[in-house]
Design a protein around this nucleic acid. Structure first.
Lengths: 228, 228
DNA sequence: TCAATGGGTATTTTTGAAAATATCATATAT
DNA sequence: ATATATGATATTTTCAAAAATACCCATTGA
């Protein structure tokens, strides 16, 4: 009689904490919670609708991802930014992504190529639509950029390497977003080159492009002067 | 006139949660909490003397370090082990440590050399005292091994790289410890070679040794048959 | 025999409040 | 005037119990 329909059969029902976690994490990466900002439990409680203990779970999690810092008994704050940190992040991203690219190029099959082409197509379409300082679709752009780079290395054969790359990529992205620097044309051109070299399976050339891609992003972000 | 002496002036007073965190983390790495083992909150409460909420903070933290897995609404368990995962960890450690070694060799000063020699001396002394299957001082050995490798890369110039390496190193160590495979002589010899090449600033030779060091550790751990 | 249903127990998740600690402004002494 | 103590307030940390969910096992119906 009582036909209790399970909320979403098959899908994972996101717990309250999980939802708030995603939102806070996203707000940090997109700069809605500014670097260095103090995170007071009571305020967060109102803003994200979760209780103190739940918030603490989330903040501890983010602390071990280095997106917030937890200082002794003095609470939490959004991880600060610095030019030195940005360069360390860029270097590490380069190290991981270059290596993963090499592995991926060596063992990607036709299905992988298909996914690469598809991801690039989506990214390209969005990049075309975005004027140089139109930040209205920045969230979509983030996702497609993320997906393209992730797909490129998806045949590297190591779950761990992919996760490590994803972690560092998000940190890199935060810098791009706090500096709000969209390098439209240049970035799009480098994405096209990455696609070409991927299909040629030329890891050396792809790595060269990647170096320019990331170094360029760093310089552009630093040039805005928002990061000291 | 109440002269309240502050507990430990200058030192950080470790909060209850922090202490329990360290202990649980250590127990996972040293295999006292077995891979795959379910972590029930009530049991942990008795064992580590912290309340449920505090435990949850800790487990969430460990989950984002991938030392425990948190499945939906089905609680926590110690991260399982697998041969595939071990090899991924070893590869990533090799990638990070080789790169860091190169940087470190290029810019280490005399003070760095002193720390390298000192760390190797301590490690060597302990390795000499340990017979091949004497596991009594395994905790000390872990610490000295960790310190030697960490000191070698300490002049790499990137805090982030050092932290990433420390993370992956601990995961690698867990495998060595669950397999309880101490490769005394071989390992000691490789450590000596690493020291020599460090003082020669020969990153290429040091990397070769490191490859043998880590690949050997993987094979040895797999050969015990405890990891499937 | 097997799958589905239902209810009781165990476990996890979330909450709000108590205890501990830090922060800040004010007063006091050197 | 500077520095140290004092107390009031704000914030963090810890706890234990309520709510939500999963798990287990007996019962029913095909």
């Amino acid at each position: 009689m009582k036909r209790e329909v399970p909320p979403q059969a098959g899908q994972t029902v996101p717990t309250v904490g999980e939802g708030a976690y995603r939102q806070i994490r996203s707000d940090i990466i997109f700069g809605k919670l500014a670097p260095g900002q103090k995170l007071r439990l009571e305020k967060l409680k109102d803003a994200y609708g979760a209780s103190v203990s739940t918030l603490r779970e989330i903040l501890n999690r983010l602390a071990s991802e280095a997106l917030v810092v937890a200082e002794g008994q003095r609470g939490f704050q959004v991880a600060p930014v610095s030019a030195a940190n940005l360069m360390e992040i860029a270097d590490l991203r380069l190290l991981l992504e270059t290596h993963a690219l090499e592995q991926s190029f060596a063992s990607g099959d036709m299905d992988w190529e298909g996914r690469v082409v598809a991801a690039h197509h989506r990214l390209k379409a969005l990049e075309a639509r975005m004027r140089d300082d139109d930040h209205s679709e920045i969230r979509s752009w983030k996702r497609y950029d993320w997906e393209f780079h992730q797909v490129l290395i998806s045949a590297c054969g190591s779950e761990l390497l992919m996760e490590s790359h994803a972690d560092i990529f998000d940190k890199y992205l935060r810098y791009q977003l706090v500096a709000l620097s969209y390098r439209g044309d240049i970035s799009a051109q480098e994405h096209r080159l990455l696609l070409e070299h991927a299909l040629e399976r030329d890891a050396a050339k792809a790595s060269e492009v990647l170096v320019r891609h990331i170094r360029g992003g760093v310089e552009h972000a630093l040039a805005t002067g928002t990061i000291r």
